[in-house]
Design a protein around this nucleic acid. Structure first.
Lengths: 183, 183
DNA sequence: TACCGCATGTAAACGGTTACATGATTAC
DNA sequence: GTAATCATGTAACCGTTTACATGCGGTA
């Protein structure tokens, strides 16, 4: 059960899309920082070094005039195997929205049944939270607690709608690329 | 700009609701763990000790037979002042959903204009994310990225609907207690 | 017998941020 | 002149989790 995704594993997954430098990864993650955490360089570069030492990635150093050389990292065969091992194991039942989103971003590394399983797991978890919250709602609660609970319920319902929609398309034989609902 | 809420400040805020023991706080936070992080005892107890040393809370030790004594913490006058100082300062523009929810849970410590300001800030931030995402959507993106973005957009829209609703009620003169939308 | 709930606490380990260093180029 | 973009990296610091210690009562 992998509850927290270490940035090590996550950036390894990102490198399946294309070879990237640390700076590239940072820029990409910054564009998604409203959904997931964007690591600082202070954790990003050491993570890349660790992956390199474990043989999960390789580097190609591209010198530039008047600038430090770009170091382009590529995932290796061993890296892909290691990623598969991790990405296939089930999400923890208390996984946060961010943790789920990090896995979703790596959807390209999933087979269709695995993608369906990921979405179904999230559906079960969110509907479980909702059910338990509805039961607890009866009790007298403080203003702030009720506000936060109401907010959370609204978000959870939106999640379930999206998941139903996506799972519906997948079950009707849609290829993963057609799962995305138009905004 | 307080982006991250330290558990110190947060549990200080929780103590405005009622005096509680560390164990009580943990149980309450566990019930909300699908929305916000529930700290471990290893950070909860030291946080309580620190608040005590700073004079922001007081303890009342209640002995029990065959069990370690319960230590009930209460917020002091200084504690309330310190909390007010913190809770009034604006949220960081990159605040996460969790960070916002933590503030919302402490809504009872806010005046009505301050509550309105908190909701309006969240509204601006979320609609800003949405706008920027729509602009970036045009570009060719990977399956996982589009899935995650679609998911995030769905959640963000649900947030805006809830915020519009709550702000609408507040502007029509509803007291904070009536702001909660029926589920 | 073994585990869960109650109830507190500490120390080591871990993962991350912050702040620094380097240095050229372009823009306000 | 000051800041931002590009591009890499290190070290100190900080908050949190994990794992441990203690100990009784109820339950499966």
């Amino acid at each position: 059960m992998a509850n927290t995704i270490s940035i090590r594993q996550f950036i390894l997954g990102l490198l399946t899309r294309q070879p990237m430098s640390g700076y590239d990864i940072k820029c990409f993650l910054n564009s998604l920082s409203w959904l997931i955490d964007s690591p600082s360089f202070g954790s990003l570069y050491p993570a890349l070094h660790a992956l390199l030492e474990d043989g999960l990635v390789t580097v190609q150093v591209i010198p530039q005039q008047d600038k430090p050389p770009r170091k382009i990292y590529s995932i290796t065969g061993v890296g892909r195997e290691t990623l598969q091992e991790w990405v296939r194991q089930p999400v923890a039942s208390d996984a946060s929205l961010k943790a789920f989103l990090m896995r979703l971003i790596l959807a390209s590394n999933l087979s269709r049944p695995d993608l369906v399983a990921l979405l179904e797991q999230r559906h079960m978890q969110v509907s479980g939270h909702l059910r338990r919250t509805a039961e607890a709602m009866e009790e007298d609660a403080d203003l702030g607690e009720r506000l936060a609970l109401g907010y959370g319920v609204a978000v959870a319902n939106a999640e379930l709608l999206w998941l139903d929609d996506a799972l519906g398309r997948l079950s009707q034989g849609a290829v993963p690329a057609e799962v995305i609902r138009q905004v």
